[in-house]
Structure formats: C-alpha cells, structure tokens
Design a protein around this nucleic acid. Structure first.
Length: 583
RNA sequence: GCGCCCGUAGCUCAGUAGGAUAGAGCGCAAGAUUCCUAAUCUUGAGGUCACAGGUUCGAAUCCUGUCGGGCGCACCA
C-alpha cells in the first residue's frame, strides 16, 4: 500500500466531515492536498499542506485551519502525534507498530512489494530504440533502450497495461542504400575485388556476412543484373538480417519487445493515404510553399509547392510537409500514419523514447498526435541526451566514418549487461551523461551498481549465516514475517523500514512522471542506509543482526535484513538487473 | 537567426508535480572496522541554486528577459 495515499484519503474524509458540519465551506477543491514525507526527519513521519492550500477558499487563516484539522487527525488510527509548524504544515508521527506492519507487508509480498493498481489498467504504448535496420546498435542506442525498457517495467508495476514497441523503418531510402551496400558485398563474396566503398553507401564490415549469405542463397544470378531486378529482394533479405542482429543485441541487454511495427507494411496497407484523407476532412491539409528557415538559408533552397499539414494550429512553429517535391511521402507523413495506427489500436497514452538528434521533431509529432486523435491521445516524448564514453577520464572518440564507433555489444562485452542497465539510469534522460568504462567496473562507492549489489550481497550473507545457526525453516521470508517485529526499536532500524515503506509511493510517482532514473536513486539511498546500519553493528555489538543469545531479537532483525534484500530485489527487477547472492 | 534541452558545492550530479534550515558521491581533512572482507562507515570544511525581474502565504522548481553550454533547424530518416 502507498501509505501516503492512505493518509491523504483520511484527510479528505475529515475535510468532507467538517464541511458537513458547517465548520468549513462545502465543495472545497482537495486536489492540491499533498501528503508527503517531510524533508527533515525531525519534523515527523508524514506531513500535509492541506491547511495551506485550503485556507484561502475556506476563508480561514492557515494556522487556524491547521488547528481544526490537526485535532481530528489526532484521532486517526496510527497517528500518535500531530504538530503545526511553519506557515501551516501539519506534521504527524506514526506509531512504531505501524512501521512494523509495513515490514511484515514487505516480507509477505516479496518482490511484488510496490505493485500498484495506480494505473488502473490503462493501455500505454512505449516505443523505444526503433533504430534503422541498417546496422548493429551502438552506444547511443543503449540509453534509449534502457530508459524505454525500464520505464515500461515501471509502468507495469504501477498498474498500467504496457505494450513495448519497436518501429522498423524498413521503407525509406535508407534501406535502399542498405540494399545497394549489401549488393556490393554480394559481388565481393562472389570473387570480385571491391576497392573503396563508394560515398553514400554503408562501409561497415558487418555487411560482409550479408553479402556472403546472399551469394550462398541466390548464387550468381544478380551479378550483372540491373538494380531493378534485385533491389527489392536484397533489401528485404538484408533488413531481415539486420533486424535479427538488432534483436540479438537487444536480447543481450535483456530487452524483448511485444510488437515490431513495420513501416513498409503500414505504407503498403495504405495507412498514409488514410491519414491524409482524415486530415483533409478536418481541413488540416493544403498545398503551399514554406518559408526558408530564418537566418541560415540552405544553399540549395528554392520555393517548392508541397502538401502541408497545419501543424501550427497544434503548437508547432510552422506547418510541416507531408509530401516531398517529387510527390513521395515524407518520413513525417508515415510517422503520423504510424501514430494514428497506435491510436486506432487503442492507445490514448503513448510514450516515444528518442535520441537527442530528434529533439527538433517533438513539437510536430505532438501536433500530429493531437490532430489525428482529435485531442484524445497524449504523446510524451522522452529525449535521451548524448552519452559520452570515457575510459579512465579520457574521452573515447566515436566516429562512424573512421570505423571506431563503439557498438552496443562492445559495450556490454566490456562492462556487462547489468552495469549498462543501471548506469544508464544514473542521470535524468534529458541530461547529458558521461559513462566511464573504468569507473563502471570499479568495486567502490564510486560505482552505484556495485554499491547496491554489495548491500544485497551483505543481506544474503547474513541470512546464510543465520540459516547455518538456526536452520532454514526459521529464516524463510514467511517465517520472518511471523517474527515479533516489534522488537525492532532502534531509531536506525525504524528509519530503514520507513524508507522501505516509501517504495510503493516511489513506484507510483516515478511511473506517473515517466522518470525511471528515480528507481536507481532510490536503491542507492536504501543501500546507503543499510551499509550504515551494518557498520553500526561493528561499533556496537548489541546492534548486530545476529545476536546468538537472543533468538527473538535476531529473528526480528533478520526480518529487517530480508526486507531490505526484498526491496532491493524488487527495484532491481524493475531495472532489469539480477540481484547477487555474493560478490 | 529560430526551436528544444541544460546551467545547483572545486568535479560529477539528485532535489520526490511550488513547501520548512539546499542534498549525495568524488576530491580534501580527521577518525572507525570480528556478521561479506579497509569493496564499508562516521564527522568536518565547502552554496549569491548562471544573472535580472515577475507570479504568491512560500520559488532551485512556474512566467519573462539576458548570458553561457549541448542538440537540431524546407523536401533526409
């Protein structure tokens, strides 16, 4: 349970009661009432701004209203103490038995602790990676892959019905380039000497095996054939191989999609004509000439009449082209059709995770979704800023042209899957990030992945030791849940339970804000508290987890340890990292 | 020139939909250590939240402008 939500419900009930009695006006807007942990632990366990946000509409001074609310709150179960502070905060303390119950709840729930019905089963589409099927994934894709995947897991945990989707751009000119590049390698595989890869084709070595596979399957039939003869076949063959490679890369990151949507299939189905028709009916399309971009006019700029979408009616700066000057669809047109397709599949809530280089595309896509859904659907685009790879403080230069760009599988090979996943969440998605390969492998406080792993391993170690001493049946999670947890009375023990009890709230808030990085920060905080508690046992032997001569106390403390391990495992599950038994 | 993102301790960054006295790690100084190990912890110093206005009970957070950095900027994807 989200305990803050619980007490918020209680406060709203009291407000209604007071309104019923005429103490305060009826029909006050309670939406802005928040129940939160206070910033300072000294202020209590929970705090509410209710008196401050209601004071104006209620026509009362904040502190007077706080006084009234506070008296009622003191009668609520588990609230042992209320206090009015500052401009009108109501601070409350909760009975320690309440916290012991929370620990019991953790132990009974296991890693499903924090699961919530907050999302009420709402369908959410999370689209991420969607890299062009023209080569292997590289480091820049890793961040989007992890952010999208963990966000999806987080939303699932918070009670949304999530679909993980990959949009395969298998219809544009870039896959023709891929086909031509593969054709070159095909001729190479049949014995022809290829000197330099011509400008405009993909030079990567990864296409050599595509050429070989083509030669093996199709023989020399296309050796002297015109492009029109082989283009479609080679294109689809190469795209399939690229997608297989990409799926393989994603699998090594532990990522699996529910749906791969093909741009080609969408186009062939006539979806783009469909979206145009829909827009025409709404009078959102016209033929016109766009102004040159302000300031810097491209050299080859010339006025061209094009089919345009009235994006400016939906918050974009200018209207956007749906057709190129040669009459073919723009990428934007197919993308619009794709998002309409998502909407028609029942998604009113869509999240796209994109790279920084697509930042300028956000407004028009939001405009597009607003238009095609008639304002019913919502699109949130998460832009992942660049990742600068470093090794021992020195920047690793990535250049496709020089062939030195680091692939995703290189990165995973270097530091491991779990480290990549966790490290990608150590920054907000819209902040740039430095990823130091050496630091990521260090076993120190510097490395948050290790630090959290270490806390979990320490928990497991203590539990193993206890099992040796007292046997398996006493130390299982369910047995520990039945222990007398009220014996946990040290402030540091209660403090760590309070942080565990905040996990359900964090899941809901992070899911609602679409901010998966909060999970990583939360785990780091929990690990910090646990390491501190551990060391207290070193300073003061009476605070150790295992006190041989006191079985009941030990069992209660082992319950705490099991709880910490459980919540860490629960968070790791969202991040997609396996907790370690030992290091 | 325009748009988006960012600007918080010496460095790298959080800041929980506007809350109380601004928070971590690293680095620096001093100390601790029989459960997983000095791979960890404790204490301390360190801040004009880029700058200037505004909104209100209350702003690092919202609005406007300025400065600085990143990404992008008819028809590519």
């Amino acid at each position: 349970m989200n305990l803050f939500q619980h007490f918020r419900d209680e406060i709203i009930r009291i407000v209604d009661e007071l309104a019923g009695q005429g103490t305060i006006p009826a029909g006050l807007d309670t939406a802005r009432i928040a129940v939160e942990p206070p910033r300072e632990a000294a202020h209590g366990d929970i705090t509410t701004n209710a008196a401050m946000v209601l004071s104006k509409p209620a026509g009362m001074k904040p502190r007077d209203l706080a006084e009234v609310l506070s008296q009622r709150l003191a009668g609520i179960q588990w609230i042992t103490e209320t206090d009015i502070a500052g401009p009108g905060f109501i601070n409350m303390r909760l009975d320690s038995a309440f916290w012991h119950q929370r620990l019991e709840e953790v132990l009974l729930a296991g890693t499903s602790y924090g699961d919530s019905t907050f999302g009420q089963g709402e369908a959410v589409n999370v689209e991420y990676v969607s890299a062009n099927p023209t080569g292997p994934l590289h480091v820049a894709h890793a961040r989007g892959a992890v952010v999208g995947d963990v966000l999806a897991s987080l939303l699932e945990k918070a009670g949304y019905a999530v679909t993980r989707e990959y949009y395969v751009n298998d219809a544009g000119t870039q896959v023709d380039v891929l086909a031509r590049s593969a054709y070159l390698r095909y001729r190479e595989a049949l014995g022809e000497k290829i000197k330099a890869i011509p400008e405009g084709l993909y030079p990567g070595d990864y296409l050599i095996s595509v050429g070989e596979a083509l030669a093996k399957k199709f023989g020399d039939q296309w050796l002297d054939a015109d492009e029109r003869v082989w283009l479609a076949d080679i294109r689809s063959f190469a795209v399939t191989m690229m997608m297989d490679a990409i799926r393989e890369d994603l699998k090594s990151l532990g990522i699996d999609f529910d749906v791969f949507s093909s741009e080609k299939a969408l186009v062939e189905k006539g979806s783009v004509e469909g979206v145009l028709e829909k827009l025409e009916k709404m009078d959102l399309v016209y033929t016109g000439i766009l102004e040159p971009p302000k300031g810097k006019t491209p050299d080859d700029w010339e006025p061209r009449p094009q089919t345009l979408f009235k994006a400016s009616q939906f918050g974009d700066e200018v209207d956007r082209a749906l057709k190129k000057s040669d009459g073919t669809w723009t990428y934007f047109a197919t993308d619009m059709a794709y998002h309409l397709d998502k909407f028609q599949r029942g998604f009113k809530s869509m999240i796209d995770v994109w790279g920084a280089d697509h930042g300028g595309y956000v407004k028009r896509m939001n405009a597009a979704v607003g238009a095609v859904s008639g304002g019913e659907a919502n699109l949130d685009v998460k832009i992942c800023q660049m990742v600068n790879l470093k090794k021992g403080g020195e920047a690793l230069r990535m250049s496709k042209r020089a062939g030195t760009f680091v692939t995703l599988s290189d990165l995973i090979g270097e530091v491991g899957r779990d480290v990549v996943r966790f490290m990608m969440l150590t920054r907000k998605n819209d902040s740039q990030m430095e990823f130091d390969l050496e630091k990521a492998l260090e076993q120190s406080r510097d490395n948050p992945v290790f630090y959290v792993h270490y806390a979990h391993a320490r928990c497991r170690s203590v539990l193993r030791n206890a099992t040796t001493e007292w046997g398996d049946d006493k130390i299982s999670a369910s047995a520990l849940a039945a222990a007398d947890l009220n014996l946990l009375s040290d402030p540091s023990e209660l403090e760590i339970i309070k942080v565990m009890a905040a996990w359900p709230r964090l899941v809901e808030n992070a899911a609602e804000a679409h901010e998966p990085h909060r999970v990583a920060y939360y785990l780091n905080d929990l690990a910090t508290l646990f390491h501190a508690l551990w060391n207290k046992g070193n300073d003061d032997a009476t605070l150790r987890f295992i006190v041989s001569e006191d079985l009941p106390l030990s069992l209660a403390r082992l319950g705490l340890v099991q709880g910490v391990a459980t919540v860490i495992a629960s968070g790791f599950k969202v991040i997609g990292v396996l907790p370690l038994e030992e290091l």
